[in-house]
């Protein structure tokens, strides 16, 4: 009967092609989910490198233990609770701090790592929500001048006189960058990392990343990305409360100590650098569309930005 198959090689060739096509479409990655750094972590990784997940989890725990505001053993906790004292830090801490200060500089203060006390005053850390009165805000605003941060680079020490550090606007992006280092070290072929909405796509194919609809379920936009890209998003829906029909969200404008009202309700950044992307999504949310575009044009011309305004109008710049 085999003689009937005149074109057997051709059949085998096409069957093989179909097989390869169908399996490649399925994009088979092993996925784990967990809660870390006060948020969730979804790791999808090619089956060959499942063992790398443990290293990723350990790295996230390590970063959390250094940069958390709430863990008593963390450097941030120590610095915030021993104001006026020089605290020993390390190169990694200085890198994150200096990146924050760089974003502060190029945004004319819109990104501020000393905003912690004001965020706390609204109850965004513990859920005891309240609207601070003007006098309280005025007092706290005096403390967030970044001149309150003193750095002794030579001896790797820092001191803050007032205000309290909060790296929440930058550290998840930094963690994503560190995860990328692990993927490289372990020769991981394909992976998608999602740390609290900060995403890293890794691999030799096109990836599709959705951006959450800020006013409902589902997504509002889809980015098509090459491997080795990160996506960071900031929105007024992440942590908020409603009082007297007004939405108070957690992204505070350091100019007045109030939730930013720039006309934007969501900003997404596509960047090669996780730490910059994460910091920029917060910064541009506070600055608004026009100032945000200017900042991108002058400093990060290769960055893609999606702006979503209160009417859910979208504008993409790249």
């Amino acid at each position: 009967m085999w003689r009937r198959f005149k074109y057997s090689r051709l059949i085998i060739f096409f069957l093989t092609l179909i097989l390869i096509f169908s399996t490649s479409c399925k994009n088979n990655l092993y996925t784990t989910k967990g809660l870390y750094m006060g948020t969730f972590l979804i790791v999808s990784i090619d089956n060959e490198h499942k063992n790398v997940i443990n290293k990723i989890n350990e790295e996230i725990i390590r970063i959390e233990e250094k940069f958390s505001r709430f863990k008593e053993e963390s450097l941030v906790y120590k610095i915030n609770n021993e104001k006026g004292s020089w605290i020993d830090v390390d190169d990694e801490f200085l890198y994150v701090l200096k990146t924050s200060l760089y974003l502060n500089k190029i945004s004319n203060g819109a990104f501020n790592p000393l905003i912690g006390d004001i965020v706390n005053e609204y109850g965004f850390y513990d859920g005891n929500y309240k609207v601070p009165d003007e006098n309280t805000l005025k007092g706290l605003l005096k403390n967030i001048d970044i001149k309150n941060i003193e750095i002794d680079e030579k001896n790797k020490k820092i001191k803050i006189e007032n205000g309290s550090l909060d790296f929440g606007g930058i550290v998840k992006g930094y963690a994503v960058d560190k995860i990328r280092e692990i993927l490289i070290e372990n020769s991981v072929k394909e992976s998608v990392i999602n740390l609290g909405g900060n995403i890293l796509v890794w691999g030799d194919r096109k990836f599709k990343i959705g951006v959450k609809n800020p006013r409902g379920d589902g997504i509002i936009y889809t980015f098509e990305l090459n491997g080795n890209s990160t996506v960071s998003t900031s929105g007024d829906y992440e942590n908020f409360f409603i009082k007297d029909n007004k939405r108070y969200h957690h992204i505070i404008n350091p100019e007045n100590g109030k939730p930013a009202e720039s006309g934007l309700i969501e900003v997404s950044i596509v960047s090669e650098s996780g730490i910059i992307g994460d910091g920029l999504s917060t910064t541009l949310f506070i600055l608004g569309k026009e100032k945000g575009k200017e900042l991108i044009k002058n400093n990060f011309p290769n960055t893609t930005v999606l702006f979503v305004d209160e009417e859910l109008n979208m504008e993409l710049i790249k």
Partner: peptide
């Protein structure tokens, strides 16, 4: 489930 979307940023 299986989806065309690889992840959702928020």
């Amino acid at each position: 489930g299986r989806s065309e979307i690889d992840g959702i940023s928020e």
